[in-house]
Amino acid sequence: MLKVLMPDHDLSTRQAVISVLVENEAGVLARVIGLFSGRGYNIDSLTVAAVDEDKHLSRITIVTSGTAMVIEQIKAQLDRLVPIHKVADLTMEGPHIAREMALFKVAGVGEKRVEALRIADAFRARVVDATTESFVFEMTGATDKLDAFAALMRPLGLVEVSRTGVVAIARGPKGIHG
């Protein structure tokens, strides 16, 4: 294979969304995280859950950033871990969908409270908890949409945020194994 995606000496960094299909066994997450910390790679977000109970498969989605050469290294290093079935760079392999879910707690009364609810409505955030002085909004969307919502909520009494991190999947009929 003559490397077509040859990493060049380009020092500009890019973000990559990497999907990793792993054997659902003890220690596999520690291996992946240890790889990133041990080799000094960035983790912008990481999510993991079992996706196929019968085949003992879990899927890890990692958002990372680095130069093209570093991202090629990350994929190669992940791929050589023993319990890893498949590594896919969704950013490079065509269009994909990336989503996060978040819960936002906003506390306030009067005009601010009304404003928070109005913006939440515009963003299609759902109210999942309410008291006379607070809301918890649930929202799913692309990372920047969640960021934008958090920024708008901050002056309106944003108390805390809990985010899942990114999950992602390629568009079209082909699966990660294809």
């Binding site: 294979m1 290294q73 791929d79």
Partner: peptide, 17 residues
């Protein structure tokens, strides 16, 4: 034999795994 050795330190023009 190890694809992660390729282009780790030195950029190469042809990789044979």
């Amino acid at each position: 034999i190890d694809p992660s050795s390729v282009n780790k330190n030195v950029r190469v023009d042809c990789a044979i795994i």
